[in-house]
Design a protein around this nucleic acid. Structure first.
Length: 474
RNA sequence: GGCCCCUUCGUCUAGCGGUUAGGACGUCGCCCUUUCACGGCGAAAGCACGGGUUCGAUUCCCGUAGGGGUCACCA
Protein backbone atom coordinates (compact mmCIF):
# COMPACT_ATOMS: atom_id res chain seq x y z
CA UNK A 1 0.00 0.00 0.00
CA UNK A 2 1.81 3.07 -1.18
CA UNK A 3 1.12 6.56 0.12
CA UNK A 4 1.35 7.84 -3.43
CA UNK A 5 -1.87 6.14 -4.45
CA UNK A 6 -4.71 8.42 -5.38
CA UNK A 7 -6.84 9.25 -2.40
CA UNK A 8 -10.45 8.26 -2.61
CA UNK A 9 -12.03 8.87 0.78
CA UNK A 10 -12.82 11.98 2.75
CA UNK A 11 -9.96 14.37 3.21
CA UNK A 12 -8.94 15.25 6.75
CA UNK A 13 -6.12 17.70 7.40
CA UNK A 14 -4.84 19.34 10.54
CA UNK A 15 -2.69 22.20 11.68
CA UNK A 16 -0.66 21.23 14.72
CA UNK A 17 1.35 24.08 16.21
CA UNK A 18 3.19 23.82 19.48
CA UNK A 19 2.21 26.61 21.88
CA UNK A 20 5.72 27.69 22.72
CA UNK A 21 5.41 31.09 21.05
CA UNK A 22 3.16 33.17 18.89
CA UNK A 23 1.56 32.02 15.66
CA UNK A 24 4.18 33.14 13.19
CA UNK A 25 3.79 33.82 9.51
CA UNK A 26 5.18 30.44 8.47
CA UNK A 27 2.75 28.61 10.69
CA UNK A 28 -0.05 30.74 9.34
CA UNK A 29 0.79 29.66 5.82
CA UNK A 30 0.93 26.00 6.81
CA UNK A 31 -2.49 26.45 8.40
CA UNK A 32 -3.79 28.19 5.29
CA UNK A 33 -2.60 25.42 2.97
CA UNK A 34 -4.18 22.78 5.19
CA UNK A 35 -7.37 24.77 5.33
CA UNK A 36 -7.50 25.30 1.57
CA UNK A 37 -6.72 21.71 0.79
CA UNK A 38 -9.46 20.45 3.08
CA UNK A 39 -12.03 22.95 1.81
CA UNK A 40 -11.08 22.30 -1.80
CA UNK A 41 -11.88 18.64 -1.29
CA UNK A 42 -14.90 19.24 0.88
CA UNK A 43 -13.05 17.62 3.78
CA UNK A 44 -12.29 18.52 7.37
CA UNK A 45 -9.66 20.75 8.85
CA UNK A 46 -8.68 20.26 12.47
CA UNK A 47 -6.62 22.21 14.95
CA UNK A 48 -4.40 20.37 17.39
CA UNK A 49 -2.28 22.05 20.01
CA UNK A 50 0.92 20.11 20.54
CA UNK A 51 1.50 20.87 24.17
CA UNK A 52 3.35 17.78 25.30
CA UNK A 53 6.35 19.88 26.27
CA UNK A 54 4.94 21.05 29.56
CA UNK A 55 7.87 23.27 30.37
CA UNK A 56 7.62 25.35 27.22
CA UNK A 57 3.92 25.36 26.46
CA UNK A 58 2.05 28.40 27.71
CA UNK A 59 -1.53 29.60 27.92
CA UNK A 60 -0.77 32.96 26.25
CA UNK A 61 0.75 31.08 23.32
CA UNK A 62 -2.37 28.98 22.96
CA UNK A 63 -4.50 32.11 23.09
CA UNK A 64 -2.32 33.78 20.47
CA UNK A 65 -2.68 30.80 18.13
CA UNK A 66 -6.46 30.70 18.44
CA UNK A 67 -6.62 34.47 18.06
CA UNK A 68 -4.46 34.40 14.94
CA UNK A 69 -6.43 31.59 13.36
CA UNK A 70 -9.63 33.45 14.05
CA UNK A 71 -8.30 36.70 12.62
CA UNK A 72 -7.25 34.94 9.44
CA UNK A 73 -10.66 33.32 9.35
CA UNK A 74 -9.19 29.83 9.26
CA UNK A 75 -12.07 28.10 10.91
CA UNK A 76 -11.45 24.56 12.12
CA UNK A 77 -13.86 21.69 12.41
CA UNK A 78 -14.77 20.24 15.77
CA UNK A 79 -13.08 20.95 19.05
CA UNK A 80 -9.45 21.91 19.43
CA UNK A 81 -7.45 18.83 20.35
CA UNK A 82 -4.95 19.31 23.16
CA UNK A 83 -2.27 16.73 22.73
CA UNK A 84 -1.26 16.56 26.36
CA UNK A 85 -4.75 15.43 27.29
CA UNK A 86 -4.11 12.31 25.26
CA UNK A 87 -0.91 11.31 27.05
CA UNK A 88 -2.57 8.20 28.45
CA UNK A 89 -3.43 6.98 25.00
CA UNK A 90 0.10 7.67 23.81
CA UNK A 91 1.60 5.65 26.67
CA UNK A 92 -0.82 2.87 25.92
CA UNK A 93 0.42 2.65 22.34
CA UNK A 94 4.04 2.69 23.50
CA UNK A 95 3.40 -0.25 25.78
CA UNK A 96 1.52 -2.01 23.04
CA UNK A 97 4.63 -1.68 20.91
CA UNK A 98 6.70 -2.99 23.79
CA UNK A 99 4.47 -6.01 24.07
CA UNK A 100 4.59 -6.74 20.36
CA UNK A 101 8.36 -6.56 20.32
CA UNK A 102 8.54 -3.41 18.20
CA UNK A 103 9.95 -1.36 21.03
CA UNK A 104 12.25 -1.88 23.99
CA UNK A 105 13.28 -0.37 27.29
CA UNK A 106 16.48 1.63 27.24
CA UNK A 107 18.25 2.33 30.51
CA UNK A 108 20.91 4.64 29.14
CA UNK A 109 21.35 7.75 31.27
CA UNK A 110 21.49 11.24 29.84
CA UNK A 111 25.17 11.35 30.74
CA UNK A 112 25.85 8.16 28.86
CA UNK A 113 24.04 9.49 25.82
CA UNK A 114 25.97 12.74 25.94
CA UNK A 115 29.21 10.81 26.18
CA UNK A 116 28.18 8.65 23.25
CA UNK A 117 27.46 11.70 21.14
CA UNK A 118 30.80 13.23 22.08
CA UNK A 119 32.52 10.04 21.00
CA UNK A 120 30.70 10.00 17.70
CA UNK A 121 31.40 13.63 17.09
CA UNK A 122 35.11 13.10 17.74
CA UNK A 123 35.17 10.13 15.39
CA UNK A 124 33.18 12.15 12.85
CA UNK A 125 30.49 9.51 12.95
CA UNK A 126 26.80 10.28 12.62
CA UNK A 127 25.37 11.05 16.04
CA UNK A 128 22.83 8.36 16.72
CA UNK A 129 21.80 6.14 19.58
CA UNK A 130 23.77 2.91 19.24
CA UNK A 131 20.97 0.54 20.20
CA UNK A 132 22.85 -0.70 23.25
CA UNK A 133 19.70 -1.92 25.01
CA UNK A 134 17.94 -3.06 21.87
CA UNK A 135 18.48 -6.79 22.23
CA UNK A 136 19.36 -7.26 25.88
CA UNK A 137 17.24 -9.21 28.24
CA UNK A 138 18.80 -8.00 31.48
CA UNK A 139 16.92 -5.29 33.33
CA UNK A 140 18.54 -3.16 35.97
CA UNK A 141 16.23 -2.58 38.89
CA UNK A 142 15.09 0.83 40.02
CA UNK A 143 16.70 2.55 37.08
CA UNK A 144 14.55 4.88 35.01
CA UNK A 145 14.12 3.88 31.42
CA UNK A 146 12.69 5.23 28.20
CA UNK A 147 10.90 3.22 25.57
CA UNK A 148 12.52 3.29 22.16
CA UNK A 149 11.23 2.07 18.85
CA UNK A 150 13.02 -0.94 17.44
CA UNK A 151 13.50 0.66 14.07
CA UNK A 152 14.43 -1.33 10.98
CA UNK A 153 18.18 -1.40 10.40
CA UNK A 154 18.34 -2.63 6.82
CA UNK A 155 16.89 -1.39 3.61
CA UNK A 156 15.52 2.00 2.79
CA UNK A 157 12.26 3.83 2.92
CA UNK A 158 10.86 5.86 0.06
CA UNK A 159 8.39 8.56 0.87
CA UNK A 160 6.12 9.62 -1.95
CA UNK A 161 5.63 13.19 -0.92
CA UNK A 162 3.03 15.27 -2.75
CA UNK A 163 5.35 18.24 -2.88
CA UNK A 164 8.86 16.81 -2.56
CA UNK A 165 8.28 13.83 -4.83
CA UNK A 166 9.94 10.50 -4.10
CA UNK A 167 12.49 10.84 -1.33
CA UNK A 168 14.48 7.85 -0.21
CA UNK A 169 16.38 7.49 3.02
CA UNK A 170 18.41 4.47 4.16
CA UNK A 171 17.27 2.98 7.41
CA UNK A 172 20.84 3.15 8.62
CA UNK A 173 20.26 6.88 8.90
CA UNK A 174 17.57 6.41 11.48
CA UNK A 175 18.16 5.38 15.04
CA UNK A 176 15.93 3.92 17.70
CA UNK A 177 14.26 7.11 18.77
CA UNK A 178 12.49 7.60 22.05
CA UNK A 179 8.74 7.04 22.18
CA UNK A 180 8.07 7.42 25.87
CA UNK A 181 10.23 9.48 28.17
CA UNK A 182 11.47 8.20 31.51
CA UNK A 183 8.74 10.20 33.21
CA UNK A 184 6.16 8.33 31.16
CA UNK A 185 5.22 11.23 28.87
CA UNK A 186 5.18 10.77 25.12
CA UNK A 187 7.62 12.38 22.73
CA UNK A 188 6.45 14.42 19.77
CA UNK A 189 7.22 11.56 17.40
CA UNK A 190 4.84 9.17 19.17
CA UNK A 191 2.15 11.72 19.89
CA UNK A 192 1.93 12.94 16.31
CA UNK A 193 1.57 9.48 14.86
CA UNK A 194 -1.02 8.37 17.39
CA UNK A 195 -3.06 11.56 17.17
CA UNK A 196 -3.02 11.74 13.39
CA UNK A 197 -4.17 8.15 13.30
CA UNK A 198 -6.88 8.57 15.91
CA UNK A 199 -8.11 11.80 14.34
CA UNK A 200 -8.34 10.14 10.96
CA UNK A 201 -5.91 12.55 9.35
CA UNK A 202 -5.47 11.60 5.72
CA UNK A 203 -3.08 14.32 4.55
CA UNK A 204 -0.20 15.64 6.59
CA UNK A 205 0.71 19.04 5.20
CA UNK A 206 3.49 20.72 7.15
CA UNK A 207 6.79 22.57 6.84
CA UNK A 208 9.62 20.66 5.23
CA UNK A 209 11.64 20.98 8.41
CA UNK A 210 9.61 17.89 9.28
CA UNK A 211 10.64 15.94 6.20
CA UNK A 212 13.26 13.93 8.06
CA UNK A 213 10.76 13.20 10.82
CA UNK A 214 8.42 11.65 8.29
CA UNK A 215 10.75 8.69 7.91
CA UNK A 216 10.79 8.06 11.63
CA UNK A 217 7.04 8.40 11.79
CA UNK A 218 6.66 6.03 8.88
CA UNK A 219 8.74 3.44 10.74
CA UNK A 220 6.47 3.85 13.73
CA UNK A 221 3.32 3.62 11.65
CA UNK A 222 4.54 0.45 10.03
CA UNK A 223 5.41 -1.09 13.38
CA UNK A 224 1.82 -0.32 14.41
CA UNK A 225 0.54 -1.65 11.11
CA UNK A 226 -1.54 1.48 10.66
CA UNK A 227 -2.49 3.14 7.43
CA UNK A 228 0.01 5.70 6.20
CA UNK A 229 -1.20 9.25 5.61
CA UNK A 230 -0.30 11.13 2.49
CA UNK A 231 2.48 13.58 3.13
CA UNK A 232 3.13 17.02 1.68
CA UNK A 233 6.14 18.88 3.02
CA UNK A 234 6.00 22.49 1.98
CA UNK A 235 9.12 24.64 1.82
CA UNK A 236 9.78 27.06 4.63
CA UNK A 237 9.50 30.79 4.37
CA UNK A 238 12.86 32.47 4.56
CA UNK A 239 13.92 35.97 5.50
CA UNK A 240 15.35 38.39 2.98
CA UNK A 241 18.80 36.90 3.62
CA UNK A 242 17.64 33.44 2.62
CA UNK A 243 17.78 31.84 6.05
CA UNK A 244 14.88 30.32 7.90
CA UNK A 245 12.63 33.06 9.18
CA UNK A 246 13.48 33.91 12.75
CA UNK A 247 13.26 36.66 15.33
CA UNK A 248 16.05 38.64 13.74
CA UNK A 249 14.07 38.95 10.51
CA UNK A 250 11.27 40.44 12.46
CA UNK A 251 9.43 37.14 12.32
CA UNK A 252 6.46 38.24 14.33
CA UNK A 253 3.22 36.84 15.51
CA UNK A 254 0.32 37.42 13.16
CA UNK A 255 -1.05 39.81 15.78
CA UNK A 256 1.83 42.13 14.94
CA UNK A 257 0.79 42.14 11.30
CA UNK A 258 -2.66 43.14 12.43
CA UNK A 259 -1.88 45.56 15.27
CA UNK A 260 1.55 47.01 14.61
CA UNK A 261 1.59 46.92 10.83
CA UNK A 262 -2.09 47.54 10.29
CA UNK A 263 -2.63 44.85 7.68
CA UNK A 264 -5.88 43.28 6.57
CA UNK A 265 -6.27 39.52 7.01
CA UNK A 266 -7.31 39.02 3.41
CA UNK A 267 -4.09 40.70 2.26
CA UNK A 268 -1.97 38.48 4.50
CA UNK A 269 -3.83 35.45 3.25
CA UNK A 270 -3.40 36.40 -0.40
CA UNK A 271 0.28 37.09 0.12
CA UNK A 272 0.88 33.83 1.94
CA UNK A 273 -0.99 31.93 -0.72
CA UNK A 274 1.24 33.31 -3.47
CA UNK A 275 4.37 32.40 -1.53
CA UNK A 276 5.33 29.05 -2.96
CA UNK A 277 2.18 28.59 -4.93
CA UNK A 278 0.92 30.12 -8.12
CA UNK A 279 -1.97 29.93 -10.50
CA UNK A 280 -0.83 31.25 -13.87
CA UNK A 281 -0.51 35.01 -13.83
CA UNK A 282 -3.09 35.54 -11.11
CA UNK A 283 -2.02 37.80 -8.27
CA UNK A 284 -5.18 39.01 -6.60
CA UNK A 285 -6.94 35.85 -5.58
CA UNK A 286 -10.11 35.70 -3.56
CA UNK A 287 -10.68 33.02 -0.98
CA UNK A 288 -13.31 31.40 -3.16
CA UNK A 289 -10.95 31.29 -6.09
CA UNK A 290 -8.16 29.96 -3.90
CA UNK A 291 -10.42 27.24 -2.56
CA UNK A 292 -11.35 26.24 -6.06
CA UNK A 293 -7.83 26.34 -7.44
CA UNK A 294 -5.63 25.11 -4.64
CA UNK A 295 -3.85 21.84 -5.11
CA UNK A 296 -0.66 20.43 -3.68
CA UNK A 297 0.79 19.83 -7.13
CA UNK A 298 1.05 23.58 -7.53
CA UNK A 299 3.26 24.02 -4.48
CA UNK A 300 6.88 24.63 -5.39
CA UNK A 301 9.81 22.89 -3.78
CA UNK A 302 12.11 25.81 -3.20
CA UNK A 303 11.90 28.10 -0.18
CA UNK A 304 10.69 31.61 -0.78
CA UNK A 305 11.78 34.85 0.80
CA UNK A 306 9.47 37.03 2.76
CA UNK A 307 8.95 40.35 0.96
CA UNK A 308 7.23 42.95 3.09
CA UNK A 309 6.99 45.37 0.15
CA UNK A 310 4.79 43.04 -1.81
CA UNK A 311 2.66 42.35 1.23
CA UNK A 312 2.14 46.08 1.74
CA UNK A 313 1.25 46.55 -1.89
CA UNK A 314 -1.29 43.78 -1.66
CA UNK A 315 -2.63 45.33 1.50
CA UNK A 316 -3.09 48.61 -0.33
CA UNK A 317 -5.13 46.80 -2.91
CA UNK A 318 -7.37 45.18 -0.31
CA UNK A 319 -7.67 48.46 1.54
CA UNK A 320 -9.07 50.11 -1.55
CA UNK A 321 -11.47 47.23 -2.03
CA UNK A 322 -12.58 47.18 1.61
CA UNK A 323 -15.88 48.50 2.91
CA UNK A 324 -15.66 52.10 4.12
CA UNK A 325 -17.54 51.49 7.33
CA UNK A 326 -15.29 48.58 8.19
CA UNK A 327 -12.18 50.67 7.61
CA UNK A 328 -13.54 53.53 9.67
CA UNK A 329 -14.08 51.10 12.52
CA UNK A 330 -10.63 49.59 12.10
CA UNK A 331 -8.84 52.92 12.41
CA UNK A 332 -10.95 54.29 15.26
CA UNK A 333 -8.65 53.10 18.04
CA UNK A 334 -5.58 54.36 16.22
CA UNK A 335 -7.13 57.75 15.57
CA UNK A 336 -8.35 58.03 19.15
CA UNK A 337 -4.87 57.28 20.44
CA UNK A 338 -3.34 59.95 18.24
CA UNK A 339 -6.01 62.49 19.16
CA UNK A 340 -6.02 61.67 22.82
CA UNK A 341 -9.80 61.41 22.92
CA UNK A 342 -12.58 59.02 22.01
CA UNK A 343 -14.23 59.37 18.62
CA UNK A 344 -17.85 60.44 18.47
CA UNK A 345 -20.52 59.01 16.24
CA UNK A 346 -20.10 62.10 14.07
CA UNK A 347 -16.38 61.40 13.81
CA UNK A 348 -17.13 57.88 12.73
CA UNK A 349 -19.56 59.07 10.11
CA UNK A 350 -17.02 61.59 8.88
CA UNK A 351 -14.37 58.91 8.55
CA UNK A 352 -16.68 56.67 6.62
CA UNK A 353 -17.69 59.50 4.33
CA UNK A 354 -14.12 60.50 3.55
CA UNK A 355 -12.81 56.95 3.36
CA UNK A 356 -13.09 56.49 -0.43
CA UNK A 357 -10.44 59.17 -0.97
CA UNK A 358 -8.36 58.41 2.12
CA UNK A 359 -7.95 54.72 1.38
CA UNK A 360 -6.47 55.39 -2.04
CA UNK A 361 -3.55 57.03 -0.28
CA UNK A 362 -2.68 54.39 2.30
CA UNK A 363 -1.12 50.96 2.22
CA UNK A 364 -1.89 50.07 5.82
CA UNK A 365 -4.21 51.07 8.63
CA UNK A 366 -1.58 53.16 10.39
CA UNK A 367 -1.14 55.37 7.35
CA UNK A 368 -4.87 55.46 6.87
CA UNK A 369 -5.49 56.59 10.43
CA UNK A 370 -2.72 59.18 10.27
CA UNK A 371 -4.08 60.59 7.03
CA UNK A 372 -7.54 61.02 8.53
CA UNK A 373 -6.45 63.00 11.56
CA UNK A 374 -6.68 66.45 10.00
CA UNK A 375 -10.42 65.99 9.59
CA UNK A 376 -10.83 65.18 13.26
CA UNK A 377 -8.50 67.70 14.90
CA UNK A 378 -9.79 70.76 16.66
CA UNK A 379 -8.29 74.17 15.99
CA UNK A 380 -5.66 75.25 15.82
CA UNK A 381 -4.34 72.22 13.91
CA UNK A 382 -0.62 71.45 13.85
CA UNK A 383 1.41 72.21 10.73
CA UNK A 384 3.93 69.67 9.56
CA UNK A 385 7.23 70.58 7.95
CA UNK A 386 5.92 70.47 4.41
CA UNK A 387 2.99 72.68 5.27
CA UNK A 388 5.17 75.21 7.05
CA UNK A 389 7.38 75.47 3.97
CA UNK A 390 4.43 76.02 1.68
CA UNK A 391 3.07 78.75 3.88
CA UNK A 392 6.44 80.44 4.21
CA UNK A 393 6.95 80.59 0.47
CA UNK A 394 3.39 81.63 -0.41
CA UNK A 395 2.78 84.96 -2.12
CA UNK A 396 2.31 87.71 0.51
CA UNK A 397 -1.30 88.35 1.37
CA UNK A 398 -2.45 85.28 -0.51
CA UNK A 399 -4.36 83.70 2.38
CA UNK A 400 -6.09 86.98 3.19
CA UNK A 401 -7.36 87.27 -0.34
CA UNK A 402 -8.50 83.63 -0.40
CA UNK A 403 -10.26 84.14 2.88
CA UNK A 404 -12.06 87.21 1.56
CA UNK A 405 -13.29 85.35 -1.49
CA UNK A 406 -14.43 82.36 0.58
CA UNK A 407 -16.13 84.60 3.11
CA UNK A 408 -18.23 86.01 0.32
CA UNK A 409 -19.04 82.59 -1.04
CA UNK A 410 -22.58 81.24 -0.65
CA UNK A 411 -22.37 77.95 -2.47
CA UNK A 412 -20.00 75.79 -0.39
CA UNK A 413 -19.81 72.86 -2.77
CA UNK A 414 -16.48 71.49 -3.96
CA UNK A 415 -17.23 72.51 -7.53
CA UNK A 416 -18.14 76.07 -6.59
CA UNK A 417 -15.11 76.44 -4.37
CA UNK A 418 -12.85 75.18 -7.11
CA UNK A 419 -14.30 77.82 -9.40
CA UNK A 420 -13.53 80.48 -6.81
CA UNK A 421 -9.93 79.35 -6.66
CA UNK A 422 -9.65 79.20 -10.44
CA UNK A 423 -11.11 82.67 -10.84
CA UNK A 424 -8.64 83.96 -8.32
CA UNK A 425 -5.76 82.30 -10.15
CA UNK A 426 -6.87 83.88 -13.40
CA UNK A 427 -7.24 87.35 -11.94
CA UNK A 428 -3.87 87.14 -10.18
CA UNK A 429 -2.12 85.56 -13.14
CA UNK A 430 -1.15 82.62 -10.93
CA UNK A 431 -1.25 78.92 -11.44
CA UNK A 432 -3.92 77.06 -9.53
CA UNK A 433 -1.23 75.22 -7.59
CA UNK A 434 0.21 78.46 -6.24
CA UNK A 435 -3.09 79.10 -4.54
CA UNK A 436 -4.16 75.56 -3.78
CA UNK A 437 -0.98 74.43 -2.07
CA UNK A 438 -0.77 77.15 0.60
CA UNK A 439 -4.48 76.75 1.14
CA UNK A 440 -4.06 73.00 1.53
CA UNK A 441 -1.32 73.60 4.06
CA UNK A 442 -3.46 76.01 6.07
CA UNK A 443 -6.49 73.76 6.09
CA UNK A 444 -4.93 70.29 6.44
CA UNK A 445 -1.61 71.08 8.09
CA UNK A 446 0.11 69.03 5.42
CA UNK A 447 1.41 69.28 1.87
CA UNK A 448 -0.51 66.17 0.87
CA UNK A 449 -4.17 65.46 1.18
CA UNK A 450 -7.17 64.24 -0.75
CA UNK A 451 -8.57 66.61 -3.37
CA UNK A 452 -8.50 70.05 -1.76
CA UNK A 453 -11.96 71.23 -2.72
CA UNK A 454 -13.61 68.05 -1.48
CA UNK A 455 -11.73 68.59 1.76
CA UNK A 456 -13.03 72.17 1.99
CA UNK A 457 -16.57 71.01 1.41
CA UNK A 458 -16.33 68.32 4.07
CA UNK A 459 -14.75 70.64 6.62
CA UNK A 460 -17.42 73.30 6.07
CA UNK A 461 -17.27 77.05 5.79
CA UNK A 462 -16.82 77.90 9.44
CA UNK A 463 -14.00 75.43 10.04
CA UNK A 464 -12.16 76.40 6.86
CA UNK A 465 -12.33 80.12 7.58
CA UNK A 466 -11.30 79.44 11.16
CA UNK A 467 -8.27 77.39 10.14
CA UNK A 468 -7.20 80.10 7.74
CA UNK A 469 -7.59 82.65 10.52
CA UNK A 470 -5.45 80.52 12.80
CA UNK A 471 -2.62 80.60 10.29
CA UNK A 472 -3.04 84.32 9.67
CA UNK A 473 -2.97 84.93 13.41
CA UNK A 474 0.04 82.67 13.94
C1' G B 1 30.49 16.77 9.21
C1' G B 2 26.37 12.68 7.71
C1' C B 3 21.69 12.58 5.39
C1' C B 4 17.81 15.16 2.69
C1' C B 5 15.99 19.21 -0.31
C1' C B 6 16.46 23.48 -3.50
C1' U B 7 18.51 26.84 -7.82
C1' U B 8 14.02 31.40 -14.08
C1' C B 9 14.69 39.26 -13.44
C1' G B 10 16.72 42.21 -6.63
C1' U B 11 11.95 39.43 -4.69
C1' C B 12 7.35 36.17 -5.57
C1' U B 13 6.30 33.36 -9.71
C1' A B 14 4.47 31.37 -15.21
C1' G B 15 6.98 27.92 -18.23
C1' C B 16 6.21 21.29 -18.07
C1' G B 17 11.92 20.07 -25.70
C1' G B 18 11.15 24.64 -30.44
C1' U B 19 8.36 31.23 -26.71
C1' U B 20 10.73 38.05 -29.01
C1' A B 21 11.38 33.51 -21.66
C1' G B 22 5.12 35.88 -19.58
C1' G B 23 2.96 38.31 -15.05
C1' A B 24 3.43 40.76 -10.20
C1' C B 25 6.19 43.63 -6.29
C1' G B 26 10.20 46.90 -6.16
C1' U B 27 13.17 50.50 -9.24
C1' C B 28 13.28 54.28 -13.26
C1' G B 29 10.70 57.33 -17.08
C1' C B 30 6.18 59.39 -19.18
C1' C B 31 0.82 60.56 -18.96
C1' C B 32 -3.29 62.15 -15.82
C1' U B 33 -3.19 66.23 -12.16
C1' U B 34 -4.19 71.78 -7.33
C1' U B 35 -0.44 68.12 -3.76
C1' C B 36 0.07 63.05 -2.53
C1' A B 37 -1.98 58.90 -4.08
C1' C B 38 -5.03 55.92 -7.35
C1' G B 39 -5.08 54.83 -12.49
C1' G B 40 -2.77 54.34 -17.50
C1' C B 41 1.60 53.66 -20.67
C1' G B 42 6.70 52.33 -21.13
C1' A B 43 11.90 50.87 -19.66
C1' A B 44 15.97 48.38 -17.31
C1' A B 45 16.36 43.58 -15.06
C1' G B 46 16.48 36.46 -15.18
C1' C B 47 17.07 30.69 -17.03
C1' A B 48 24.06 29.63 -11.29
C1' C B 49 28.22 26.90 -13.95
C1' G B 50 30.14 22.50 -16.71
C1' G B 51 29.24 18.17 -19.20
C1' G B 52 26.01 15.06 -21.64
C1' U B 53 20.92 13.17 -24.25
C1' U B 54 18.55 15.42 -28.61
C1' C B 55 17.88 18.04 -35.04
C1' G B 56 17.03 21.40 -30.89
C1' A B 57 17.64 22.51 -24.18
C1' U B 58 15.20 27.23 -19.29
C1' U B 59 12.71 22.49 -19.75
C1' C B 60 15.53 15.56 -19.39
C1' C B 61 20.21 13.11 -17.05
C1' C B 62 25.03 13.56 -14.41
C1' G B 63 28.49 16.52 -12.02
C1' U B 64 30.30 21.37 -9.75
C1' A B 65 29.22 25.58 -7.06
C1' G B 66 25.96 28.11 -3.99
C1' G B 67 21.78 28.13 -0.65
C1' G B 68 18.52 25.74 2.78
C1' G B 69 16.64 21.92 6.16
C1' U B 70 17.69 18.21 9.74
C1' C B 71 20.56 15.23 12.96
C1' A B 72 17.38 15.70 21.65
C1' C B 73 14.08 11.96 27.02
C1' C B 74 12.04 20.01 21.71
C1' A B 75 8.29 20.09 18.62
Amino acid sequence: MSASNAFAGKVVTRFAPSPTGFLHIGGARTALFNWLFARHHGGEFHLRIEDTDRARSTEPAIAAILDGMTWLNLNWDGEVVYQFSRAGRHAEVAHQLLASGHAYRCYATPDELTALREEQRAAKQPMRYDGHWRDRSDRPNDVPYVIRLKAPRDGAVTLHDKVQGAVTVNNTELDDFVLLRSDGTPTYMLAVVVDDHDMGVTHVIRGDDHLNNAFRQLALIRALNWEEPIYAHIPLIHGSDGAKLSKRHGALGVDAYRDEMGLLPEAVENYLLRLGWGHGDDEIISRDEATGWFELAGVGRSPSRFDIKKLENLNGHYLRAADDGRLAALITARAAAALGRELTADDQALLQRTMPELKKRASNLNELAASSLFYLRSRPIPMDEGAAKLLASATPGLLDRIRARFAAQDDWSAAALEQVARDMATSEGAKLGQIAQPLRAAVTGSAQSPGLFEVLEVLGRQEVLGRIDDVLAG
